[in-house]
Design a binder for these strands. Structure first.
Lengths: 336, 336
DNA sequence: CTGTTAGCGCATTCAG
DNA sequence: CTGAATGCGCTAACAG
């Protein structure tokens, strides 16, 4: 009963079971059917249990060419939307690979973008791009799924952002808003362009003569707070009755800034946004927002990616589009 | 100029540069100094650039025994505190390994705990445990760093939770609170026990006769909202003047629930908590809370882990303890 | 200073 | 139904 000095290898298992490594490999990989007798299989299984054998991932990867890992490229895990995408992706890859696949997190700052070196180094079988840096050249055939990037080619899963944006426009128009400030982001990502454009187009359509003013700030709480603090009076002076932010994070910041400035919401100003992160339901007042299924986005993306990796589908096919819908809460009311 | 049919390998680079693979390996791994002439080195570098060569991570891992990856075990990436720990860990490992190390995310649900199979499969060189499942046996020597788990043995980085808790107790006592509800969590993690116990102890010390009532709910917004909605009147009837939650998430939920129930904060009830997630600054009212440096926790943990992996320190040594301090905002006021 | 070579641990083809 | 042999791409002794 001397314990093996280090991790057991397939040879050890083979010896313990009195078989060859090939046999061990077959049973480990579920390819025993028709190749290994049930009795032998059990002996091997016993040996595996006895020795605590676990297949070495690197060696298997080298031999098979499959890494059993995918990467998620994102900028800011601290953004609740991104965090939910990540959680969904982790769940999706586990689900699609029956627990044998894992998530490598590749985060980047704004300037650098995610570090994609491990992608080039073939650490992963595929990539989920929430928001891109540029992928390393030299891996043109690498399976990639774009998340929430309607302008991307190839495999992608996105959301009915336009439908939601239009719904929001009609909601505000119906409340009499004719002059709204749209708070965009400095990022040139297609999803944000789509949010603004669909909103503005629908507003123009249902409320002819309505005007959309533009401003922008970073996607974080503090930026929203600061912006509202500085500009609230000007907005009111300009006759703005509603502000629509590209993300809940900005809107929640704005709400706080407005509260600090003594501006009533929705009395003086209505506020709405996109995402429906959990905090949107508990802000003061609770935020009217276009609910975007972040977690499902990640999950479906992972499942799709797993399919592409497995070779189920090579053609990009129809982009998966998840539903988005407006959630009306208390931050929007009649224009004053 | 025919492009190689697939990823270039070291042999290809060697051929292209007219050297041997060993030479290629040396320059790739920065061990050229004193072994490879500068001229040869440049030829190799050119060949690498020309062929777009990137070292295969699996092969290198197999040969060196180092995976250049560490895992972060956590339960809920959706919790802003955890997300910040993850972001910090990603930054820390990049920093400590000069960009060559990466973060494998191992998430689990409440029932299952994180899936630690890849740890057993030696996918990683070490593990950052934010909150444990049980690690696979059979890897007794695996470098591990515990985060925010004061009861854990071995390497760990934690925070001055007790100091913060005491500060909070004195703050509330000073405001005249003598009957406070402590809102704990169902999780038996040591950090939560520490928060409560230190708070209760200090309160008893500075305000003899003060009483701490206990309740608990899950660590999420909705649980806090619901609990407050259901129990607010009872709390008031019991003479409770302050509620202290183990986490901001719970407290922010409570704040929303209280607002919905028409209970003034801090007029009727003061509310405080631990963590200081970014949302704590924008809740209504802004939340008094013990600021815990989540990002730094992750970062320092990663740096420490990298050190342990590199063999810098094998002895657990002094646990790293990060400072925590009370941030007083508007959710606490004089007991009524 | 540079090249040869033997593993690293596993998957898999091909004999038996 | 089972075992021996080959190669995955790289690193690091060791020779030269």
């Amino acid at each position: 009963m001397t314990r093996p000095p280090r991790r057991a290898r397939a040879v050890d298992v083979a010896a313990h079971a009195g078989v060859s490594v090939a046999t061990v490999s077959f049973v480990v990989n579920g390819k025993a059917e028709g190749r290994v007798s049930p009795a032998t299989r059990l002996r091997v299984l016993d040996a595996i249990a006895a020795l605590g054998y676990v297949t070495d991932a690197s060696a298997r990867a080298l031999a098979t060419g499959r890494r059993r890992q995918v990467a998620l490229l994102a900028h800011d895990m601290t953004n609740p939307f991104t965090a939910q995408v990540a959680a969904g992706a982790a769940a999706g890859i586990a689900e699609a690979t029956e627990g044998t696949g894992h998530l490598l997190l590749l985060l980047g700052s704004d300037e650098t973008g995610p570090d994609v070196e491990p992608v080039g180094a073939a650490t992963v079988d595929g990539v989920l791009i929430n928001y891109p840096g540029t992928l390393p050249a030299g891996r043109p055939d690498l399976p990639v799924v774009h998340l929430d990037d309607p302008a991307a080619g190839g495999h992608q899963v996105s959301m009915d952002v336009e439908v939601g944006a239009r719904e929001l426009a009609r909601h505000l128009a119906g409340l009499g808003h004719r002059r709204v400030l749209y708070l965009g982001t400095p990022r040139p990502w297609s999803t944000f362009a789509q949010r603004r454009d669909a909103f503005a187009a629908e507003l123009a359509a249902v409320a002819p003569g309505a005007v959309v003013l533009d401003d922008r700030c970073d996607i974080d709480l503090a930026a929203g707070v600061q912006l509202a603090g500085e500009h609230a009076q000007r907005w009111l002076a300009d006759g703005v009755t509603a502000v629509v932010a590209a993300t809940d994070l900005q809107a929640i910041g704005v709400l706080a800034g407005l509260a600090a400035a003594g501006v009533q919401v929705p009395g003086r100003l209505s506020v709405a946004a996109f995402d429906d992160i959990p905090f949107a339901a508990v802000s003061a007042p609770p935020l009217t927002t276009v609910a975007l299924p972040a977690r499902e986005l990640g999950r479906r993306g992972a499942v799709l990616l797993a399919g592409v990796i497995a070779g189920d589908r090579t053609e990009p096919g129809d982009p998966v589009v998840l539903p988005a819908r407006l959630v009306v809460r208390d931050s929007t009311g009649p224009a004053c």
